[in-house]
Design a protein around this nucleic acid. Structure first.
Lengths: 339, 339
DNA sequence: CTGAAAGCGCTAACAC
DNA sequence: GTGTTAGCGCTTTCAG
């Protein structure tokens, strides 16, 4: 393993110049820079990140803490973050907090304390005040994605507004008996998305002067299967069944579509269905949905961190940046049946 | 940030003893050990991984290189690896090679060369001989999951045998017109799974004395949508349409089920469908499939690495360890229609 | 079983 | 613009 000294010798300069030339910090004459780069390439030299980190205090590594890997939203955020980091020469250390809660403490032991990372991205995870403070004391920037963390810069869509938009779309089509499939309460612990989406739904209903009926609400676990069963429940009533269902996620909406079919009904003739996400499968199922852009959220989280890590000129943005979303009308929604 | 020195002072021992007590390397009297641990806890001390790595040459970090994050197989492997590593106090640095191939070179620059990791897990990625050698020269253990890498310990199911099993299941039910949805050729570049599964299918057919008809083959991209379109193609012929379809993945099999329904046919009455994976959704769709266990594959990959990283007593296993798989019969397969 | 001390390979003042 | 040099915080011989 060639070291910096050998490169310096070969290039005919000092190790300090090599370091400067290769890291871009401080000024180096173009001539020296060229020599250094040539020498480094020749020897296949690359800095030892450990030595560099130890000496500089920077690791060029950010930690991503995330509760699921196998769900569309989460893997998309992760993908976006990974790519943005890679582009900037940063590594991504992954902490998947699925499984028991014991892991969580362990993770904080691990990497907060081992100083492996320069910054942390917390996805849909509500950190305790203690955890936040601990990071803060260490001077590690922290940014949240998808779940508001008190006192922390967070990227998240406005769940209330998104749900309202979806509901208003159905109301606009003339629907009045609109049911909602929300998230199980357990999903509300760490990120209040289920509650917020339900609030948006109820607000839109009330504003339109439509009563919110408890029998038009069901909860599920954000999966296709969960949505399927919830929808069957909602549609099972013989009379005055809902003419539309707004599901809090596309996967549940897809489950709903499958349930409608299995009930011998047709989407959108008998029942309109709308979701949230614009999941990979939404287009395939012709699902009308409110799109959000998790990849972009991951990328943007990285950008925010970079502003703090490598201070540029951009003005710091407000604490909770609202993210874009967009209604995508496909073939799962239509005017209600005329009865 | 408390350092090792402060801990040593508080515990009344030398830094060397603190190091030994906390790392478990070398012998320390129980008494000292207790004192050190108490002092460390009191000060909230945790070793700096950089300093430790620099001095010891070990990073307690492994790199995982993986082409997709948003596919069931891959996120499951990742999850398994992550958990197994966490348990052992290792970090996982993620390198997602989706996107352009440029990234790939960059990744090798990054972490091979920055010596960030002690070992590498390559998931469904065929490394070049050069890449393998480079890692080897650096003394970094490398283990593959899901795609055979020449000269490298690899965990993978026997794709030929798995496909044969799925096909034999259909043959055993009396099917003769069995179509196969395989992977696009582009997927074959990095891991030969599509080809191998097709070979297994053909072998089973021939052994049963059934001719393999080209019109009974279609390829897709391993997605539900891809499977759907491929299945429509296969089932579109007016006469002598296949009575069974074996898809090379569950997602394609699910697409097939949806296509069958849309064609006004019924699974399994008109068409039997079998897949490979035992995807989360397989049970929901009543899909008969050959289950594989990607989480376990991820965990096992870690185990293999640990044997090399922290040599224990276990005998090294053969280069290509066959992994378990298992036919799970559900409601998507039945005897063929009697015509 | 424990301590002293020499680095691990780089970066960042500081001088020039 | 470039060289000199003192660490970064730990691990690990080597003595004892």
């Amino acid at each position: 393993m060639a070291g910096i000294e050998e490169v310096a010798k070969l290039a005919g300069v000092s190790t300090a110049t090599v370091s400067r030339a290769l890291s871009g910090r401080g000024h180096v004459s173009p001539a020296s820079k060229a020599k250094v780069e040539e020498a480094a390439a020749l020897l296949g030299y690359v800095v030892s990140s450990n030595a560099s980190s130890l000496a500089s205090g920077r690791t060029r590594n950010v930690g991503v803490v995330i509760p699921f890997l196998n769900r569309w939203f989460f893997s998309s955020v992760l993908e976006g973050a990974q790519q943005a980091l890679l582009r900037r020469g940063y590594d991504l250390t992954l902490y998947n907090l699925s499984g028991d809660g014991r892991e969580r403490a362990s993770v904080f032991e691990h990497f907060l304390l081992r100083q492996r990372v320069d910054a942390v991205i917390a996805v849909s995870l509500e950190l305790t005040e203690h955890e936040v403070r601990r990071l803060h004391d260490l001077g590690k920037p922290l940014v949240g994605v998808g779940g508001p963390i008190p006192g922390v810069r967070t990227l998240t869509i406005d769940d209330v507004a998104v749900a309202r938009l979806a509901t208003e779309h159905l109301l606009g089509l003339g629907h009045r008996r609109i049911a909602h499939i929300g998230g199980d309460l357990e999903f509300d612990l760490d990120f209040h998305l289920p509650t917020n989406r339900r609030l948006g739904y109820e607000a839109a209903m009330r504003e339109a002067g439509v009563e919110v009926e408890p029998r038009f609400f069901a909860s599920a676990d954000f999966t296709i299967r969960g949505g399927y069963h919830a929808a069957k429940q909602l549609l099972g009533v013989p009379h005055a069944r809902p003419t539309a269902i707004f599901a809090a996620s596309d996967e549940m909406a897809i489950g709903t579509i499958l349930a409608v079919r299995d009930l011998g009904l047709s989407v959108p003739r008998d029942v309109s269905v709308v979701g949230i996400d614009d999941h990979d499968l939404a287009d395939f199922f012709g699902l009308t949905t409110v799109a959000q852009f998790p990849r972009v959220q991951g990328e943007q989280a990285v950008e925010v961190l970079m502003d703090e890590l490598e201070p540029g000129l951009r003005p710091p943005e407000p604490e909770a940046t609202p993210l874009p979303y967009e209604l995508r009308v496909r073939s799962s929604t239509a005017t209600p049946p005329s009865e």
